[in-house]
């Protein structure tokens, strides 16, 4: 399908969305701080402490199995010391986004969106480490936000989405292709429009728009390829929108794999089987982490 037409449709659609949330203030500040050299630790701490809900959520998450503290961490300051500066940015950024999607359970439960998104974040980071991509935190964050379009598209276009899922029952499919067929656009374009509206940095916009077409990326094809692969792996290892996506793939035929192999020749030796099994071991941690975001504070506990 014509990319320009899909983009046009997405733009019109996003304009038509009633009550599309705005980007949280804290997230904007975290993004500002992301690439600024010499940011003080206190600046980040102050920013988190200024928002009590956010502070409480950060503490909940830092105590989840993903970060494995030996003793319970009870203050933002301790969380900062335990995680270090770079990681606290990740956490603040993610936590600040939770409310944006609250109550947007359309076709997908928002929690399954978070499970997939965190999964892709964590796996993007692991792949980034393997290929020695310089900014693994960026890979993590952009992994988390890569699918923002999906939440809104499935929420605002529930009938079409339902028909789409009905049509593929019991068959393998790639969601992005089916969306183009049923909606004239896909979550990639929708996500890109929203990311631009929210003034996300250019590389983030690129990944959101092209995470299914990494070969078209210009700013950072490696980053796009990392997120693309992480997305594929999550789709086949239980972090798949509660089983609502059904993908098969042959790594050797994936463009992202070719991009990453050119970037990091050592990837040829990757034990893909073991990589999958290790990923399975991370799944419960990721699910617990998502549970911890929803528990008790601010956001409604999903049923």
């Amino acid at each position: 399908m014509d990319k320009a037409a899909m983009m046009q449709t997405a733009q019109e659609m996003v304009e038509s969305f009633v009550d599309l949330p705005t980007i949280p203030h804290v997230a904007t500040r975290v993004i500002e701080l992301l690439d600024r050299p010499g940011v003080e630790l206190d600046e980040v701490a102050d920013m988190i402490l200024a928002d009590q809900v956010l502070a409480a959520r950060v503490i909940k998450m830092v105590n989840s199995p993903l970060y494995k503290p030996a003793n319970e961490i009870k203050s933002v300051k301790r969380a900062l010391i335990y995680l270090g500066f770079r990681h606290i940015r990740e956490l603040a950024f993610t936590c600040s986004f939770v409310d944006v999607f609250e109550g947007r359970d359309g076709i997908f439960d928002v929690r399954t969106f978070w499970e997939h998104s965190f999964g892709v974040g964590v796996v993007s980071k692991i792949i980034a480490q393997r290929v020695r991509y310089p900014d693994t935190e960026k890979a993590y964050l952009v992994g988390i936000v890569h699918d923002i379009g999906e939440v809104f598209l499935s929420y605002y276009r529930q009938d079409a989405f339902r028909a789409l899922l009905e049509s593929v029952k019991g068959q393998p499919f790639r969601l992005v292709e089916k969306e183009a067929e049923y909606l004239g656009t896909s979550h990639s374009e929708i996500g890109l429009c929203i990311a631009r509206k929210w003034n996300f940095p250019a590389e983030y916009c690129e990944v959101i728009g092209l995470h299914h077409d990494p070969e078209q990326a210009v700013l950072d094809p490696t980053l796009c390829a990392i997120v693309n692969l992480a997305d594929l792996f999550c789709s086949v290892r239980q972090l798949d929108y509660g089983g609502n996506s059904w993908v098969t793939f042959n790594l050797a035929e994936e463009k992202a794999w070719a991009i990453l192999r050119a970037y990091a020749p050592n990837l040829a030796d990757l034990d893909v089987e073991r990589f999958c099994y290790e990923l399975d071991d991370r799944v419960p941690e990721i699910l617990d982490m998502v549970k911890s975001i929803f528990q008790g504070i601010g956001a409604k506990e999903p049923s």
Binding site: P172, S235, T248, F249, R274
Partner: peptide
């Protein structure tokens, strides 16, 4: 279910599906 052919045969290609993989 938890087996791997890594390092055993370099001709087979891995095909992933939800919850597992196969070789072709």
């Amino acid at each position: 279910q938890s087996e791997s052919l890594h390092g055993v045969n370099d001709k087979f290609k891995t095909v992933h599906f939800p919850g597992g993989f196969t070789y072709n």
